[in-house]
Amino acid sequence: MADVPSPLADFIVSEIRRARGASGMTQEAFGRAAGFSASHVSAVESGNRALTIDFIRGADRAFSNDGLFGRLVAKLGAPSWFLPWLDAERGARQLRLFEPLLIPGLLQTENYARVVMRLNDLMSATEVDQQVSARMSRHKILTGDSPPQVVAVLDESALRRSGDEYAGIIAEQVAHLITVAELPHVHVHVIPAGAGLHIGLSGPFALARAGDGSWVGHLENQLGGIVVDTEDELHTLQTRWENVRNEALPRRQSNELMKEVHSDHGPH
Rank of each mutant, 00 (worst) to 15 (best):
Q27Y: 01
G35V: 06
V153W: 09
I141T: 05
V150R: 03
I12H: 02
Q94G: 00
M123T: 07
S42I: 02
P148I: 06
R71N: 09
E45T: 01
H235Q: 13
A34V: 03
A152H: 12
A50T: 07
G211C: 02
S39N: 10
V186L: 09
V190Q: 05
S137W: 00
D129I: 06
L142P: 08
R49H: 06
M25I: 00
R61C: 01
L183C: 04
D229V: 01
R252D: 13
L207D: 07
V244M: 11
A195Y: 11
V151F: 07
A167L: 15
H139N: 04
A2H: 06
L122V: 01
L249I: 08
S39A: 15
G47S: 06
S124F: 07
G67N: 04
N111V: 03
E256F: 02
D66W: 05
A167E: 13
P267C: 11
L154F: 03
D10I: 03
P104T: 12
E233M: 10
I178G: 07
R209F: 01
G266K: 11
A50S: 12
D3V: 11
R118Q: 10
N48W: 02
G35T: 08
S23D: 05
H262P: 00
R32H: 12
L106S: 12
V174F: 10
A19M: 04
A181Q: 06
S263D: 13
G144E: 13
H265V: 02
V151S: 12
L257A: 08
R114I: 04
H218V: 09
P84N: 09
Q108R: 13
G163N: 12
D129C: 01
S157L: 04
D3G: 13
H189F: 08
T26M: 03
Q238I: 09
R61W: 01
R93W: 14
L223T: 15
L219G: 08
R93A: 03
R161A: 14
H198W: 13
Q130D: 14
E220R: 07
S137D: 05
V115T: 04
R96Y: 15
G217C: 09
I169C: 08
H185D: 11
G47P: 06
R57G: 12
R17C: 03
D232T: 13
D60F: 12
H40M: 10
G47H: 08
R20F: 02
V228W: 08
R61D: 12
Q149D: 13
R135W: 04
G144Y: 11
V153A: 05
N221V: 00
R96N: 02
H265K: 09
D232C: 02
E156H: 05
I226Q: 14
R138M: 10
L197F: 11
I56L: 03
S64V: 11
S37F: 01
H218Q: 13
E242Q: 15
A208E: 04
V188I: 15
T143E: 12
V244P: 10
A43S: 09
S6M: 08
V4N: 00
H235F: 11
R18N: 04
I170S: 13
L197H: 10
F30T: 03
V180G: 00
L106N: 06
L119E: 10
Q253K: 14
V227E: 14
L183V: 05
